[in-house]
Simulated scan of single mutants.
Amino acid sequence: MSFQFNVPDMTCGHCVSTITKAVKDAVPGATVTTDLGAHRVTVDGTTDVDEVRQAIVDAGYEAQLA
Score class of each variant (00 low, 15 high):
residue 1 M to F: 05
residue 1 M to E: 06
residue 1 M to P: 06
residue 2 S to C: 05
residue 2 S to H: 10
residue 3 F to W: 14
residue 3 F to M: 05
residue 4 Q to C: 06
residue 4 Q to H: 06
residue 5 F to M: 04
residue 5 F to C: 03
residue 6 N to V: 01
residue 6 N to Y: 14
residue 6 N to F: 04
residue 6 N to M: 04
residue 6 N to D: 13
residue 8 P to W: 05
residue 8 P to V: 04
residue 9 D to L: 12
residue 11 T to V: 14
residue 12 C to V: 12
residue 13 G to E: 11
residue 13 G to N: 12
residue 13 G to M: 10
residue 13 G to P: 01
residue 13 G to R: 06
residue 14 H to V: 04
residue 14 H to Q: 10
residue 14 H to C: 07
residue 15 C to V: 10
residue 16 V to P: 00
residue 17 S to E: 12
residue 17 S to Y: 00
residue 19 I to W: 08
residue 19 I to E: 01
residue 20 T to Y: 10
residue 20 T to C: 12
residue 22 A to K: 13
residue 23 V to E: 02
residue 24 K to M: 15
residue 24 K to E: 15
residue 25 D to Q: 11
residue 26 A to I: 12
residue 26 A to N: 08
residue 26 A to L: 09
residue 28 P to G: 08
residue 29 G to E: 05
residue 30 A to E: 02
residue 30 A to W: 07
residue 31 T to C: 00
residue 34 T to I: 06
residue 34 T to Y: 00
residue 35 D to F: 00
residue 36 L to A: 10
residue 36 L to Y: 06
residue 37 G to Q: 13
residue 37 G to H: 06
residue 39 H to C: 10
residue 39 H to R: 14
residue 40 R to Y: 07
residue 41 V to E: 06
residue 42 T to M: 09
residue 42 T to K: 08
residue 43 V to M: 11
residue 43 V to Y: 03
residue 45 G to W: 01
residue 46 T to W: 03
residue 46 T to Y: 03
residue 47 T to D: 15
residue 48 D to H: 00
residue 48 D to T: 15
residue 50 D to T: 14
residue 50 D to Y: 05
residue 51 E to F: 00
residue 52 V to D: 07
residue 52 V to K: 02
residue 52 V to T: 07
residue 52 V to H: 03
residue 53 R to Y: 04
residue 54 Q to W: 05
residue 54 Q to M: 14
residue 55 A to P: 05
residue 55 A to L: 15
residue 56 I to C: 07
residue 56 I to V: 14
residue 57 V to I: 15
residue 58 D to K: 13
residue 58 D to F: 08
residue 59 A to P: 09
residue 59 A to W: 05
residue 61 Y to H: 14
residue 62 E to Q: 15
residue 63 A to H: 13
residue 64 Q to N: 13
residue 64 Q to C: 08
residue 64 Q to E: 10
residue 65 L to G: 01
residue 66 A to W: 11
residue 66 A to L: 15
residue 66 A to P: 03
